[in-house]
Simulated assay, not measured.
Amino acid sequence: MRADAKKNYDSIKAVAREVFLEQGADASLREVARRAGVGMGTLYRHFPSREALLEPLVRESFDALAQQAEQLKTADSPNQALVSWVQEVIGFTYRHRGILSVMMSAIEDRDSALHVSCDGLRRAGAQLLARAQTEGKASRDLSGDELFDLIAALAWLRDQPAHAPRADHLFEVVASAILIRE
């Protein structure tokens, strides 16, 4: 990649990260281009779709969450490891407004630029759940896909002003239904 093209690419990514954090995943791509000091053609040459622009931005976070799950697989308390990780993922979706619907679409669409990252995140959670189930600390009635759906539902509740006050309580209710208490 030419030096000027690399500079534009890096600038677009840096600005997009700021704009998406400020305005959510549905932020104006025109605003991203304007702040990055490039035209729309340049933006689309580097990132042909919104998902293509979101992918490098969220991949780092998804990879970090997956790595955290990997480390938690050896935690003393598999049920607490699972709860902690789920809370982290919900927090991520809350900080990145609008990313939840993008994630849920991408997990089902193998052609999505975000599919691999989202699927890696789902698999990381499924492994934590499987460990807790193997050790008798979580209900065997739940699959990794269903855990991902529950995370999405709880994250959605937290993002809704009318439901946000109840989100933590509902998280505890769901956790109590999944986890087997001593």
Rank of each mutant, 00 (worst) to 15 (best):
L29G: 09
E182N: 11
A27C: 11
G136L: 00
L82A: 02
A14F: 02
D109Q: 10
T93F: 01
V102L: 06
K73I: 03
S143D: 13
A14H: 07
L100M: 09
V15G: 00
W156Q: 14
A138S: 06
F92E: 04
D159L: 13
L43E: 02
A75W: 02
I178Q: 04
I151M: 14
M104T: 06
Q127M: 13
E18Q: 13
I151T: 07
S61E: 11
L65M: 12
N79K: 09
E135I: 06
V173S: 10
A177E: 15
E22M: 10
D149Y: 13
L129H: 01
R140Y: 00
V83I: 14
V58W: 01
V102G: 03
I90G: 04
R30K: 11
A75C: 05
A75P: 03
R122V: 03
K13Y: 03
I90R: 01
V174F: 09
G125C: 07
S117M: 02
A113E: 13
M104D: 08
L147V: 07
H163F: 11
P48T: 00
R97K: 15
S112P: 00
A155S: 15
V19D: 01
R34K: 11
Y94W: 14
S139I: 00
Q71M: 10
E60G: 08
T74H: 08
S112E: 07
T42D: 04
I99Y: 05
A113H: 05
R166C: 11
A130W: 04
E172T: 04
S139Y: 01
L157V: 10
L21A: 10
H163Q: 13
D145I: 09
V58M: 10
A64Q: 10
L114D: 01
P161D: 14
R123K: 13
G39A: 06
E55H: 03
Q23F: 10
G91K: 09
D10S: 06
F171S: 03
D111L: 15
I90W: 01
